[in-house]
Nucleic acid binder design. Structure first.
Length: 373
DNA sequence: AAACTTCTCAACCGCTTGCAT
DNA sequence: TATGCAAGCGGTTGAGAAGTT
């Protein structure tokens, strides 16, 4: 196994490519194909080594390369594939048409990795880590984040922090809150009133936990059906409340809305198989759904949080592989995916309630990739 | 407006892998 | 089997852009 004696010859140019060089390379490959990279530079009249030509072609000049910002779906795919494949950039790129391994690697290192770290998630293991969690996001306004070292919280900020005090022992909820409240950038939806967020988060978590429980036991049709009902109950209530928490943003693109519509439609089809509402006073496996709903409608205190948490925890223990009850777990439920699944369930899980949750609102909720940066 | 800092990403480096001989 | 070469891969670098002071 010898080593490629590449770029060793003196006189070969290095550094940025000029438009003339690009033109020569493209023209040559169009005419002759990629062929032998070692002989290509000489034949194409380029003072570059073959390796440099290959990289320039595969990473930049190839006609099928998709340029521009990564989409929501691409980002999600990268996070999920990375949790499975690790830093196998070429393997990840193979599943993202038009994207190069180099581009994905750069995007991971400059955007996704930092975001995961800020949210308290280890970008290597994809496991939540309390020591990485940036709790300051609960306090520091986006505009002040840059000068966080000298930022003094206002009374309103302190009130916000007090509102989250009951969450002290629940790192998953804290992380979700941190995510939803850290919304820099003008294109981002912002939480109008952070203190209103808490009850909604609980509902969202309940709905998500219920959905996951239902998915856990497809072989147990009866039990799964019960959980589906629970999911719909929670989803319906949360649908009514969540839109009021968001400041509307006019920048949501048509493409985003279409993507979300498709996702919501898929969910609707699945939900249609079960589509019905839980009867009044319905009790599911010992869980009194209406009582739980009433509980989360109120400003939560430590005791009802404890009650809710133990409910979800016991569900978790039934199947640890599903990350049930964690709004920000990876890989299958990355921070974004967790919200995605939750909101998608709202969008289609309960057909009547979902109708009240417009696509515009849904897309605002789902478009978290920007404001978590 | 200038100086400084931070961020982005194209390109490079060096190692591994696969194939032909 | 051993060797040489080409291609592929992942980590790193550094120039320029963008943002901040």
């Amino acid at each position: 196994m010898g080593r490629a004696p590449c770029c060793e010859k003196s006189g070969l140019k290095k550094g940025p490519w000029t438009p003339e060089e690009d033109e020569k390379l493209v023209a040559y490959i169009k005419k002759n194909g990629q062929g032998n990279w070692r002989t290509l530079p000489k034949n194409a009249g380029l003072a570059r080594c073959g390796k440099s030509c290959r990289l320039r072609w595969t990473n930049y000049l190839r006609p099928d390369i998709k340029r521009g910002r990564f989409s929501f779906e691409e980002e999600e795919t990268i996070i999920q594939l990375h949790s499975i494949l690790g830093n196998k950039w070429s393997a990840i790129a193979a599943r993202l048409p038009g994207r190069t391994d180099n581009e994905i690697k750069n995007y991971w290192n400059t955007h996704i990795r930092k975001r995961l770290l800020r949210m308290g998630i280890d970008p290597v293991t994809h496991a939540p880590r309390l020591d990485l969690l940036d709790l300051s996001a609960l306090l520091i306004k986006p505009s002040a984040a840059a000068s966080a070292a000298c930022y003094y919280p206002t009374q309103a900020d302190l009130d916000t922090l007090r509102a989250f005090e009951p969450l002290a022992g629940y790192p998953d909820l804290l992380r979700l809150a941190s995510t939803l409240l850290s919304s820099p950038g003008s294109a981002a939806p912002a939480i109008a009133d952070p203190q209103q967020l808490l009850p909604w988060m609980l509902q969202a978590q309940m709905a998500q936990a219920a959905a996951a429980m239902a998915q856990q036991a497809p072989q147990q049709q009866q039990a799964g059906h019960h959980h589906q009902l629970m999911q719909q109950a929670a989803a319906g209530a949360a649908c009514q409340q969540m839109p009021d928490l968001l400041v509307h943003d006019a920048n949501t693109t048509v493409a985003q809305q279409q993507q979300l519509a498709a996702a919501a439609q898929q969910q609707d089809m699945a939900a249609a198989c079960h589509g019905m509402h839980p009867p009044a006073g319905y009790v599911d496996d010992g869980l009194d759904v209406p009582a739980l709903m009433q509980m989360v409608h109120q400003q939560p205190d430590a005791s009802n949080l404890q009650q809710w948490s133990s409910t979800v925890t016991s569900s978790n223990n039934n199947n640890n592989s599903n990350n049930v009850g964690s709004g920000v777990s990876t890989p299958s439920s990355s921070p974004v995916a967790g919200l995605n699944r939750t909101a998608t369930a709202y969008g289609g899980g309960a057909s009547d309630a979902a109708a009240q949750f417009s696509l515009q609102q849904l897309s605002e909720l789902l478009d978290v990739s920007d404001y978590m940066m």
